[in-house]
């Protein structure tokens, strides 16, 4: 007689469960993969980039990409009008775009969570005031508001990041407030309150961790719009100033090269598109994986 030991299947840890749902979405995994590559490029830009982003090769102006006639393998994607290597500028631009995205998302997430928690927790007058301001901000298209802010503060990369974090604030406030209000009526919050937890503990330790899922999704999507808005501001001359290797500002004077140097026009925009697309794909995947309603 053989004995057979039967063990209950070990339940998946939350992380495993998350990965199970997330990895079933091919687009999301592709997006994540691309973001990892871009992130790697950004961190090790100094090592990977074949040239310095500001080095001007006087003997190699407007060189086409390497595989084309007249191209040079030292400059894989060609050079711009003052002989800077486009590939190196793109790699360094990744650092800038991701850094701006990171700063803008972190800042607006932090402010949004704080305002949303306060509005949802205290309700009443404070809530009304915060939500009215949020409504006003939502009435303006984000790019227009960002342009207005930069127009006043003066064009620079820091002001552009600040403007972007201000314009993306309303979404985080709304999400946090809605989630907080839903959690407030739960039993665990009431019991913590009965035990004697103060408002700060209730807000940040009890309620906040349970509101995180939609915020994570929004933050990922926020990254994509931050990068897009940053590039738009750079393109309009209101963001990063030349010679900073920012993707949008690399396109700012590309208009004059449309006729004779397609590579100057094509590659920076392609980087913006692919990066924004990757974040959007990942955001969609995260939403599916984190939303319990869709899991069934």
């Amino acid at each position: 007689m053989t004995t057979q030991t039967l063990s209950a299947p070990t339940p998946r840890t939350p992380l495993q469960e998350f990965w199970y749902y997330f990895s079933s979405n091919k687009g999301a995994v592709a997006g994540l993969g691309f973001i990892v590559v871009i992130g790697f490029m950004a961190i090790f830009a100094d090592v990977i980039a074949p040239h310095s982003p500001s080095d001007q090769a006087r003997d190699a102006l407007l060189l086409p990409p390497a595989w084309m006639e007249g191209g040079n393998w030292a400059y894989l994607l060609g050079t711009d009008d003052v002989g800077r290597d486009i590939l190196s500028r793109l790699i360094h631009g990744a650092r800038l775009s991701l850094a701006v995205g990171m700063v803008a998302v972190t800042a607006s997430l932090a402010m949004g969570i704080l305002l949303g928690l306060v509005a949802g927790y205290f309700k009443g007058m404070i809530d009304t005031i915060i939500m009215r301001i949020v409504d006003i901000m939502l009435a303006m298209p984000s790019l227009l508001l960002a342009i207005a802010i930069v127009a006043v503060l003066g064009p620079s990369i820091v002001n552009a990041a600040l403007a972007i974090s201000i314009v993306s604030l309303p979404h985080y406030v709304r999400l946090t407030r809605a989630a907080t209000m839903a959690e407030m009526s739960r039993d665990y919050v009431t019991s913590s309150r009965v035990i004697g937890a103060g408002p700060l503990r209730l807000m940040f330790i009890c309620i906040l961790p349970n509101c995180l899922a939609p915020l994570i999704v929004q933050a990922t999507l926020g990254f994509s719009s931050a990068i897009l808005d940053m590039a738009a501001l750079g393109f309009l001359g209101l963001g990063a100033q030349p010679p900073t290797p920012e993707w949008g500002s690399m396109l700012a004077d590309a208009l004059q090269f449309v006729q004779r140097a397609w590579w100057v026009v094509t590659f920076p925009g392609l980087m913006i598109l692919l990066t924004v697309l990757a974040f959007n794909l990942m955001g969609d995947g995260l939403r599916d994986a984190l939303d319990p309603k869709l899991k069934q």
């Binding site: 994509s224 897009l228 026009v265 925009g269 598109l273 697309l277």
Partner: peptide, 20 residues
């Protein structure tokens, strides 16, 4: 999804490059 992620100023340049 690609259209939604499009930096339209670049899209404009690209179309101009091709069609104009």
């Amino acid at each position: 999804l690609t259209g939604y992620s499009m930096p339209i100023f670049w899209w404009a340049l690209l179309l101009m490059l091709i069609f104009s």
